[in-house]
Design a protein around this nucleic acid. Structure first.
Lengths: 214, 214, 214, 214
DNA sequence: CATGAATGAGGCTTCATTCAT
DNA sequence: AATGAATGAAGCCTCATTCAT
């Protein structure tokens, strides 16, 4: 089963050798607050007080609040969290022999992922608009880790005549990702959404993706 | 041809009767700055100085900075700008008799729209994550104005056997919108994007949408 | 009689048109505190509270604490205070027909000046070491306003065979200034100095200066 | 030849018995940083990192940053550095039999000294204004070590009818010191000074001092 | 003895908002 | 209605100093 990013971060932060309990607490609190309220709306005092730490401690390892995001959290995601996620995701997908199960698994897995990481994804989507560092990080993560793994699975399916050979792998991947995210937007954006409508939209999305790719 | 949102706002603000020149200037400056730098990063001083108005004047009609957004700008968008945009968009779409030209027009028109309103769209996407008011506004705008208009056009095509009757109108609309936006993400996010790759992705997207909906 | 710099500043600040009472108060308080405790040891909170003003007010007209010094106080000195001082000083000196009375007046006048402006002079001497802006200002002030005025009076005395023609005017001026300041160092540096010893050193200094210049 | 103060401190610190390598390193780094940036602008972290020592170590022997200056560095200067300097200086001066060579040597030696110790002298001049401890130290150093040595040499010259007997020794010393420093001010204050002008001012200063004292 | 993480007071600065003119 | 000076809370960050290891 998918673990949430926060769980993975938590786990990994605890494994880091050169990092004290207080600093772990700082990173976790920052992750939590940034994802709940956004970067701009989270003060260093908020972080310190949630981490039960002095404000000075926040600055012990990270010279600025920006660095806490860019040098503290994001590299952790890139080096530890993202590979873990990609592995979990592709493991599941690689067992799908036909397009139907592939699409089914892709959508369901990502929907669960979005569900579990709702808050963190919100902050990433929010920051990515105006923050070049995050933008670059996310882009590289996508291009270098996620896309190759998924596109190789798509190629396998294509080799088995499961996917329209006219469609380039990266466009197929983009369509899968995009339409999955779009169906989940109500979940990301609001606290109250209609579950039965969501489920019917998920089915519709799978139907559309199948028609699209077959 | 598509006019940019800023052009429309400009035009409409000038027509408003009960609003003084100074206040018009405030609204225009706020629109411009919010769309360039985001709501949080725009100070009332910035707005006042771009509007060539005193800081006090900004507060004459709008008691808070939030109100400038919620009571000043957003209703303006809702009541004036959005209908204008929807009208321009549906006018063009309504002349398409078959699915091919419909998809073609839909994608091309929205791409031009995104191009022209890049800055404003970025800020909206950024704010929508954490700002309930904007979220609600955008949601209502979509549900009450845009979706009905487009979905009625989709129904027409369905009536003419151009679209798979299995697909519900709102899912068709969502697919059109989502995949168009997704192909434009590189434009929204970066200053440098590969135009030839963009064009080939646009073609691929149209191809996928046609397969999907037909 | 010599007025102190603070008196002149006070007087001139009050005459400035575009400057409010609060801002006058800020400038005066800054002058006073910088001269008492040095620039580094004066906090903006100190300035605000002495001026009976909020800390924000300190930043209304001066974007940074540095600017309060460089753009606020120093130009005031340059444009208003320094000319006033030079005028008062040269007026008195220009009435001296022989070297004896010139040296006498020079030393006595400057001693009174140093006495009255002890605090301000301390801060200037302290800052001038590490602050290029102040350094440049003081240098220009000396070269462009003070030196020409005094050296022209020295030339007059030379024309009347009162001063050794071998001595260049600027060296004569430097000697007068330097030896006067040096005799006053105990006053600048300590709160307790021996008045009778000071007076005897003043006489000695005048004697030395006369031998030197004659 | 004159050694710089830093060289002497370095030498002497290495000789101290009851002081560990780490502490030596702390003292040297503090000397260097205080003289380059001033006391206020040097942080204990700066000192620790230049000394390649932990911040805690800086506080092992010196309870406060102030004490590092007052109990650590200044006594070292007083007990070791100053006597060394005075010895070197008076050795050279004591070989001068007439006033001409005395003035010549005095000025040249001190000019070299100022040149070599430019940075350290700047910080001392800067601190002496507002720091009573340094002020007292420098005053005592001057009164108890330097002045007696030099004034005794002046007395010798006076005994040989080289110096005007009307001039008290301490005034002669003050005049020599003051005028030498004053001619070197451009060197202390700016990175760019006119060497040929400096040399001509040095000659002029010697000429004036001779007239003064003879 | 040495380390360096942790502290928390305090510094500079910004900014939405108010109010006398 | 408009102005802009004034406010003061809050934000980010620095730094001398302490203390558990």
């Amino acid at each position: 089963m998918n673990r949430s990013i926060i769980e993975i971060v938590n786990e990994q932060i605890n494994k880091q050798a050169g990092i004290s309990n207080k600093q772990q607490s700082v990173l976790l609190s920052a992750t939590e607050l940034f994802s709940m309220k956004g970067f701009n709306n989270t003060s260093t005092k908020d972080i310190a007080s949630l981490a039960q730490v002095s404000e000075g401690t926040v600055y012990k390892h990270f010279k600025t609040k920006d660095e806490l995001l860019h040098a503290g959290l994001l590299p952790l995601y890139k080096s530890v969290v993202a590979p873990e996620i990609v592995k979990e995701f592709t493991n599941e997908l690689s067992q799908c022999k036909d397009l139907e199960s592939f699409v089914d698994t892709f959508v369901d897995n990502r929907i669960e992922f979005i569900h579990k990481n709702k808050n963190l994804l919100k902050i990433i989507l929010g920051e990515v608009m105006f923050n070049d560092n995050i933008q670059t990080l996310m882009y590289n993560l996508l291009q270098e880790m996620v896309a190759p793994a998924i596109e190789s699975l798509i190629q396998n399916l294509k080799n088995n005549n499961q996917i329209d050979p006219e469609i380039r792998n990266h466009n197929a991947f983009q369509a899968l990702a995009t339409n999955t995210i779009s169906v989940m937007l109500p979940v990301l954006l609001s606290h109250n959404y209609d579950v039965s409508k969501l489920n019917s939209d998920i089915s519709a999305t799978k139907y559309l993706l199948l028609k699209m790719l077959k």
